[in-house]
Amino acid sequence: MGRKPCCDKVGLKKGPWTIEEDKKLINFILNNGQCCWRAVPKLAGLLRCGKSCRLRWINYLRPDLKRGLLSETEEKLVIQLHSQLGNRWSKIASYLPGRTDNEIKNHWNTHIKKKLKKMGIDAVTHKPLLPSMNEDQQLNEQPQKQKMDENDGSEIEFGIDEVPLIQPHEILNSLSSSSSYSPSSSSSTTCLSLNNKTLGQPIDDQLLSFDWENFWGDDYNFSLDLLIDENSLFEK
């Protein structure tokens, strides 16, 4: 079941109010006071709906009506009442003399909502706004982009400490497991062979007891001849 209409709308006037209609409504209410709005049109001699008379009086004709934007104190009161009552504008308007529910609602949507958003407050829940996921991702990506830009303009430097150092005994141990050297071969790897007797000796003894003649082959004899010739020159 729907709500019963306030009056029969057959033959009633619609559209903007005229000055004569405003005068009739003002004179009736000032002389008789506010009564049942359904009976006001007949008693005031108006061909209007009771709802239309009520809205015309409350929003435009009542003498205590305030014009203009809401003040700061009124805005604070509206925010406080909205946090408790929600969008019950008529109830909120009852706490602000001279202000209409429609005026307060329009001011809320056009001014107060934007102010609350700038302050970081949700206009519905009146709680601080939470940052969105996109903003968090952008904040996390900014430092990473800065690091990438810095690395692009800088040269890569290698430290000496990063290169592993090979000890002499490691070389000798690796050589002991390899085959003998052939000077005529074209391979890029050089292989040395050590006797089993020299493996347990200190590094210096291993180097002295190593068979360098077989290692260098013909080049060893050639180098010895050069050394003998040079020494004979110095002796002379």
Rank of each mutant, 00 (worst) to 15 (best):
P16W: 03
V10K: 10
K9Q: 07
F210K: 00
S154N: 15
G86M: 03
P63H: 12
L12F: 00
G68E: 13
K14Q: 08
K118A: 13
N151D: 11
G2L: 01
M119V: 10
L25C: 02
S154V: 13
L77I: 10
C49F: 03
I26R: 03
S83N: 05
N31K: 15
N214Q: 07
C7I: 10
H82M: 03
E20R: 08
I166D: 10
N140H: 04
A123E: 14
P128D: 00
S154F: 02
E162I: 09
L47W: 01
L129A: 01
G217D: 11
K236N: 04
N102C: 05
N140M: 09
R38V: 15
G217M: 00
L47I: 07
I203N: 15
W216R: 00
Q201I: 04
L233K: 10
K76M: 13
K113H: 09
P183K: 08
L139H: 09
V78L: 10
N31T: 15
D149A: 06
G2Q: 03
Y181S: 05
L61M: 08
L43T: 07
T189W: 02
M148R: 03
T125P: 00
F234G: 10
N195A: 08
N231F: 04
Q144M: 08
L30M: 12
K127Q: 06
K145D: 04
K14P: 00
R3A: 07
L61V: 02
H169P: 12
G68P: 08
N134E: 15
S184N: 13
L192K: 05
D161G: 06
L65T: 03
L226I: 11
Q167F: 12
T18Q: 09
R54M: 15
R38L: 07
P202K: 11
Q137R: 13
K23D: 05
A123C: 12
R48L: 14
T110E: 02
A44R: 11
Q206S: 13
C191M: 06
N109M: 10
Y95D: 00
Y181A: 06
K23H: 06
E20Q: 06
S209I: 01
C36D: 15
E74A: 06
P202C: 08
A44N: 14
L116W: 09
S83K: 07
C7S: 11
C49D: 07
G45R: 05
P202F: 01
Q138N: 11
Y220D: 04
N195E: 13
C35E: 14
S177Y: 00
E155I: 09
R99F: 12
E170R: 06
L192M: 15
E141D: 11
T73D: 12
Q138F: 06
I29Y: 02
K42I: 10
R62S: 05
L192Q: 14
E135H: 10
C7R: 03
N140P: 01
H111N: 06
L130W: 00
L194N: 00
S186Q: 14
D149Q: 07
P202A: 02
L233F: 07
G33F: 11
G33L: 14
N32T: 14
K13F: 01
Q146M: 09
S52L: 03
K113G: 08
L224G: 00
K117G: 11
N221R: 03
R88H: 11
N87G: 02
L129I: 13
I112L: 08
I19L: 08
G86L: 00
I160A: 08
W216V: 05
L224Q: 12
S179L: 12
K23V: 00
